[in-house]
């Protein structure tokens, strides 16, 4: 079996060999795999969850599931990809277990978040599009917005729109057909856009009424 050498020039068993040793009852072999992919799994969980405890739970669950399903791993396939599938599905399960917010409302925003939103939307569209700076308020607002989406919508939004995965890649990770991914993506966009439009309208009418109160003669911007 192929073995690599690490920087210290020691023989390093490859994933497949470690899987086989684990299946034969070698507990230490699986521990090597845990140390090899622990960081990657932890950061996959970070794509969906901000809190370290949640990401640790997902990591633990992923390795436990992998250990229990080790006999289903097909030799020759990438162990890392196999593990990633388990991790993303663990994240999806966790999203489904979470209490979903009933609706997104501007009234749920903290004052700072509201101010951030008003300032952002006061900019010309072009400038807003190219804005790179991040803000804690944007993070909090985004979390609230995403929490109002269904688990499927949330998952495809993050993987496709934010992380740039293809529909084929998402399909492979989730075990969904490509048409299923496309339908979910369509629905997710519609759901998110509906909320964003409400935010835009709300913020505009708020700033319009503010402008009216400040300067009754001012020309209202469209």
């Amino acid at each position: 079996m192929a073995e690599k050498r690490n920087s210290a020039n020691e023989l390093v068993p490859d994933d497949e060999e470690l899987v086989e040793r684990s299946l034969a009852g070698d507990a230490e072999a699986f521990e090597v795999l845990v140390r090899r992919y622990g960081r990657a799994i932890y950061n996959v969980a970070g794509r969906f969850f901000r809190q370290p405890e949640m990401r640790e739970d997902i990591t633990q669950e992923t390795f436990l599931k992998a250990y229990q399903a080790l006999h289903t791993y097909r030799r020759g396939a990438s162990f890392e990809r196999w593990l990633m599938k388990i991790a993303v599905n663990a994240c999806y399960d966790a999203l489904r277990r979470m209490q979903r917010r009933r609706e997104f409302s501007l009234a749920d925003l903290a004052e700072d978040e509201q101010t951030w939103l008003e300032e952002a939307l006061a900019k010309p569209a072009f400038e807003l599009f190219e804005q790179q700076q991040q803000s804690e308020n944007a993070v909090a607002l985004a979390e609230k917005l995403l929490a109002s989406l269904s688990p499927e919508d949330r998952l495809v939004m993050l993987l496709y729109e934010r992380d740039g995965l293809s529909t084929a890649e998402i399909g492979e990770l989730m075990g969904w057909s490509r048409s299923k991914v496309k339908i979910r993506l369509f629905r997710a966009r519609r759901a998110l856009d509906k909320r964003l439009r409400r935010i835009l309208q709300g913020a505009q009418s708020a700033s319009a009424s503010k402008a009216k109160a400040d300067e009754p003669e001012s020309r209202q911007e469209r």
């Binding site: 960081r39 932890y42 950061n43 990591t59 939307l121 807003l128 599009f129 964003l196």
Partner: peptide, 27 residues
Amino acid sequence: EELRLLALKRILLRATRVPEVDPAPSL
């Protein structure tokens, strides 16, 4: 208006990104 919506969507989605880090060794 459409670009404004798109821009807001991008900003918010990007805001949910978490930088890759090492987990706590206790994990």
